[in-house]
């Protein structure tokens, strides 16, 4: 099938992870992966982002498919259950809001900037090469560290399930995918 421009968005996803690794402020660009799918779901009532533009999904299918890094086994039943998918969405958002809270604490001056990336919500990795100060408030960097933690954690989880199960197993429990599907369900039920 003919390749379209959006079939190469995996390059943008890879570039995002690499650039933010060296300069944490690039992590802010990750907000696009939140607002674009939500916008498409809310305005268009479809999952156009997952279906076409998700660079992360493309990256997983490339690594797991063409590069053969996946066992290509079925995901377990519980992983595709509504309980797990909605539970993971709630957990992910709880962690997201806790990250926003830490950002607020830095903005308000109650806490100092922590130059660390928290992997899998547990492991605090020192990350002191990616930020050297700007004219902006330290809170801007704190959000970037927190957001990069979210993006890196989801990438690591996605890579693990890519290796153990099918390349795009992440799509099964991706919180953005679950949320946009819920929005589409609500929206299309009303219109139907």
């Amino acid at each position: 099938m003919k390749k379209r421009w959006y079939d190469y968005l995996w390059i943008a996803s890879a570039l995002y992870l690499i650039l933010s690794f060296f300069n944490i402020l690039f992590a802010w660009l990750g907000l696009l992966c939140f607002f674009i799918p939500l916008g498409i779901a809310l305005l268009g009532g479809n999952k156009g982002y997952c279906n076409r533009y998700c660079g992360r999904g493309q990256l997983f299918s490339l690594l797991g498919g063409r590069f053969g890094l996946s066992r290509k086994k079925d995901v377990p039943r519980w992983m595709k259950s509504k309980v797990f998918r909605y539970g993971f969405l709630v957990f992910f958002f709880a962690m997201f809001f806790s990250m926003l809270w830490s950002t607020w604490l830095v903005f308000s001056g109650a806490q100092d900037l922590k130059q660390a990336v928290t992997l899998l919500w547990t492991f605090k990795l020192p990350w002191n090469w990616a930020y050297h100060g700007t004219i902006l408030h330290h809170g801007v960097a704190q959000f970037a560290f927190g957001f990069y933690s979210v993006m890196l954690t989801s990438t690591v989880l996605g890579l693990i399930t890519m290796i153990v199960f099918k390349p795009r197993s992440w799509c099964v429990y991706c919180p953005m995918g679950t949320m946009t599907q819920l929005i589409c369900k609500a929206k299309n039920r009303k219109e139907a």
Binding site: C50, N51, R52, G57, S61, R85, R168, C171, G177, Q181
Partner: peptide, 10 residues
Amino acid sequence: LCVACGYCVK
């Protein structure tokens, strides 16, 4: 159970 990811379409 479908998550509507659209990979089948691709």
